[in-house]
Design a protein around this nucleic acid. Structure first.
Length: 177
DNA sequence: AGGAAGATCTACT
DNA sequence: GTAGATCTTCCTA
């Protein structure tokens, strides 16, 4: 996806936490049996019908999952950020996660939200605005990345096509086939 | 009001 | 690798 390789920036009081997006999954609306939007316009996921570039944060199994709305208004769909590679503020992430293993900080959807202190307070925030507490920056020195794709992980009913994208040979992706 | 499900994580064998 | 914990929202009575 286009999000791969971009930088996720979480702004706290005096600090900034940064991480490179290394793993994503696509979710659609009613076409997708795994999507929460499949049953119709549920109140809490109305953001999927909203404008692209907004954060859609969803709680499941006691974990916050971070999504980015990916389609124009009117079309439901979002991209789940599964894993990032910590770049800045790593010590604070370790503190948030109570772990000192860097590879264990953000290599999963629920883990990265803990490390970055992402909660439903940030639901619906504009990820493209400079003032947002949470935003996505384009990687200036965009290195060459190889994108690999596979089927989604831990989804009870997956679709027929692979909807998971990740950066090849990156140690921070949650699972490699 | 109560119960079930869900895009997960951790700990233990 | 498998089981259990965990929490919020939605569905049904």
């Amino acid at each position: 996806m286009e999000l791969l390789g971009k930088i996720l920036v979480r702004k706290l009081d005096e600090f900034q936490l940064k991480g490179k997006i290394v793993e994503t999954e696509a979710y659609y609306g009613k076409e997708d049996p795994a999507s929460r939007a499949r049953k119709g316009k549920l109140p809490h996921c109305e953001l999927m019908w909203s404008d692209p570039g907004k954060a859609f944060i969803y709680m499941v199994h006691g974990n916050w999952l971070l999504n980015v709305v990916a389609f124009p208004r009117g079309i439901p769909g979002a991209v789940l950020i599964r894993a990032i590679e910590p770049l800045e503020g790593i010590e604070l992430m370790m503190k948030n996660r109570k772990s000192k293993d860097i590879k264990n900080l953000t290599n999963g959807p629920g883990k990265l939200t803990q490390a970055l202190k992402i909660t439903n307070k940030l639901n619906g925030i504009d990820l493209t605005s400079k003032q947002s507490e949470l935003r996505i920056e384009t990687n200036i020195a965009q290195e060459k990345i190889e994108i690999e794709r596979s089927f989604r992980i831990n989804v009870s009913q997956d679709m027929k096509e692979p909807l998971r994208f990740y950066i090849k040979n990156n140690p921070f992706v949650s699972k490699i086939f």
